[in-house]
């Protein structure tokens, strides 16, 4: 019900639409994977076989495209999605759209060159590197879509883009660590890199959580209403008794207890288990299974993390609906 004053510990946050949660995680990992191959293959750091190329590129593309497609599901008018390419001058969403699509151009050249002509150097290699840079740019844009939104303190901060990068990279690397094993029986460098990146991503995520937990909100119900001269400002009645669009979109209710439990699960599944599994993949002959476990667990962890990214984000509009501070 609209605007009932939140009971202790309950707060209203951005609604974690599954399409968007999936979009950002999937496309993040896909583009990161693309970036990794785009750089590492031309530099000769990864198997050059067409089989590997096909598998890695397919996974990257499927994830990136599925992510984009899922974000289309979120649109009210998906058939007009093409119009989103027009406002790259100002809009991070537009930039993301443009860049994500453009990335496929060098990626395609790179893929064709590699898979059809077996060439990963020269122009093809350059295209790979270009695709990598653009894929990274896409991830940057995705992060900036959120980081640029001033009404949401949990997003509008310097930790969001690094987090998007780190988590994308982590996902991409985990995937790579799995795929590469079919062509490279006992990779060492990759799992080590994975471990470093997981550690870094985990660290960044913890810093992010700490940041949103301790930084003061710039806005409160007094600044939102211009009131407060007489003392504490509290909502008396909402404008409507049932939930309206704003409340459905930005008034997602989640209990603190629940939130903390989910963070724990995200830590376990997103970082700890993948770390242990990756570690295991380093030493055991069953590296493949361990890498797969790492990927699956991380996938779950990342989805939870991304879900929390929304469910912990409080929008200033809730100041008009009972929140005293966001």
């Amino acid at each position: 019900m609209a605007g009932s004053s939140p009971a202790k510990g309950i707060r209203a946050a951005m609604h974690p639409a599954l399409s968007i949660v999936f979009f950002t995680t999937a496309s993040g990992c896909g583009f990161a994977l693309l970036a990794l191959i785009g750089i590492a293959v031309p530099l000769g750091l990864l198997p050059q076989s067409a089989g590997f190329g096909f598998a890695a590129l397919a996974v990257a593309t499927v994830l990136a495209v599925a992510g984009l497609a899922s974000s289309m599901l979120h649109l009210g008018r998906p058939e007009r999605a093409w119009r989103a390419f027009s406002q790259w001058k100002t809009s991070w969403l537009s930039r993301e759209g443009v860049l994500s699509v453009l990335t496929f151009v060098p990626a395609a050249v790179f893929g064709l060159g590699w898979l059809v002509f077996g060439n990963t150097g020269g122009l093809v290699g350059l295209c790979g590197i270009l695709a990598a840079v653009m894929a990274a740019g896409t991830i940057y844009c995705t992060g900036m879509i959120y980081a640029s939104l001033k009404p949401i303190r949990q997003w509008n901060n310097g930790w969001v883009v690094p987090n998007y990068f780190a988590l994308g990279l982590m996902g991409g690397l985990l995937l790579l660590n799995l795929i590469v094993r079919f062509w490279m029986p006992w990779p060492i460098a990759i799992p080590v890199l994975v471990l470093i990146v997981i550690a870094a991503a985990w660290g960044l995520k913890e810093r992010y959580w700490r940041f949103i937990d301790i930084t003061a909100a710039p806005s409160n119900v007094a600044s939102a209403t211009g009131l407060g001269r007489r003392g504490k400002v509290r909502m008396l009645e909402p404008p409507n008794t049932e939930e309206n669009y704003l409340l459905k979109e930005m008034g997602f209710r989640i209990a603190r207890k629940h939130r903390l439990r989910l963070r724990l699960i995200a830590r376990l599944t997103g970082f700890l288990v993948p770390m242990l599994a990756t570690l295991a993949s380093l030493f055991t002959p069953v590296g493949l299974i361990a890498a797969a476990v790492a990927v699956l667990s991380a996938a779950l962890g990342l989805v939870i993390e991304r879900w929390l990214f929304f469910a912990e984000a409080k929008h200033t509009v809730m100041l008009y609906y009972g929140a005293e501070i966001v």
Binding site: H74, L75, A84, S148, E249
Partner: peptide
């Protein structure tokens, strides 16, 4: 308008 809702977040 494509109904991406981003403006409502902004």
């Amino acid at each position: 308008c494509i109904g991406c809702k981003l403006c409502s977040w902004a």
